[in-house]
């Protein structure tokens, strides 16, 4: 929730309550407050289609409320009729009469200035990997492979530490630009990328997949994605052209170590 928007709106409404304003003002204020709340008050902005739907419902409901009793209808129509008929309100009436086509014109101006949008492509975020890939000279079986250095965590912690340190160097020399200082997917270039770089701190990423999956991603990058993954949308480079296999396994050791996660076991599949 965007408190900078919600709190002032609530404050204005509280003030109007104290001032005991009339029904017409309240109707307009409620309409405006709900629109502003929906449009600007949510942390993740709602799509326009939903806002249109909700505001149509609000409009119908307010109309039903106003129309459902003589007193309320009077309370809303009365000031409007007075505005239109009494001489002292003529300047205000003229201002409103100019404002309405003015708003319509502004709306048309905004509609004409719509940015070009690329067609929406619903990509699979984690597509199924191929059974094996060729990295350099070697064939890597993606179904049954494990990280060769993973076992060092138990058997030789010191060597494990070294691999993690080596991986850290690889990360901060190559990956942090997009994936961020703290592996949050918020690196300095992330703002220009669509799709966004993976957030390794998210619980749905590292622990849900075998390490061989991420080895594939690192080695083959965006161009290595299948059609459903949108290969030419992803900016992930093919690191096999820059790193050797050991460096790639090392950086995976680092990722899991930094975020304190364990990879999915081989033979365990996503839906079991």
């Amino acid at each position: 929730m965007n408190l900078w928007v919600v709190l002032p709106v609530l404050a204005v409404m509280a003030l109007l309550r104290l001032l005991k304003v009339g029904l017409l003002t309240w109707v307009l204020v409620w309409w405006g407050a709900l629109y502003i709340g929906m449009r600007y008050g949510l942390a993740a902005p709602a799509p326009q289609s939903v806002i249109t739907l909700y505001m149509s419902i609000v409009t119908l409901s307010l109309a039903a409320y106003v129309g459902s009793s003589r007193e309320r209808t009077e309370g809303v129509l009365g000031p409007m009729i007075r505005l239109m008929s009494e001489k002292r309100y003529t300047p205000l009436l003229v201002a409103i009469a100019l404002l309405i086509p003015g708003l319509a014109g502004y709306n048309a101006y905004l509609a004409a200035g719509l940015r070009e949008e690329p067609p929406y492509f619903s990509r699979t975020v984690h597509p199924a990997p191929p059974p094996q890939i060729t990295v350099g000279e070697r064939e890597v079986d993606l179904i049954r492979s494990v990280n060769p250095y993973r076992e060092l965590e138990e058997s030789d912690p010191q060597a494990f530490e070294e691999h993690a340190r080596a991986g850290r160097e690889v990360y901060y020399e190559n990956c942090f630009y997009c994936h961020g200082d703290a592996l949050g997917g918020d690196g300095m270039f992330a703002h220009g990328l669509d799709p966004l770089p993976s957030d390794f701190t998210d619980a749905g990423v590292l622990p849900n997949f075998q390490e061989s999956f991420f080895f594939w991603r690192v080695a083959k990058g965006g161009p290595g994605l299948p059609a459903e993954g949108g290969p030419w949308d992803s900016a992930m480079p093919r690191w096999e052209q820059f790193l050797d296999e050991d460096e790639m396994w090392d950086v995976l050791i680092f990722l899991y170590d930094f975020t304190d996660r364990t990879p999915r076991e081989v033979g365990e599949f996503v839906n079991e």
């Binding site: 699979t124 984690h126 597509p127 199924a128 749905g204 459903e228 996503v270 839906n271």
Partner: peptide, 8 residues
């Protein structure tokens, strides 16, 4: 589904 996890 193909390639989705979670509550399926």
């Amino acid at each position: 589904t193909v390639g989705e996890s979670g509550a399926l």
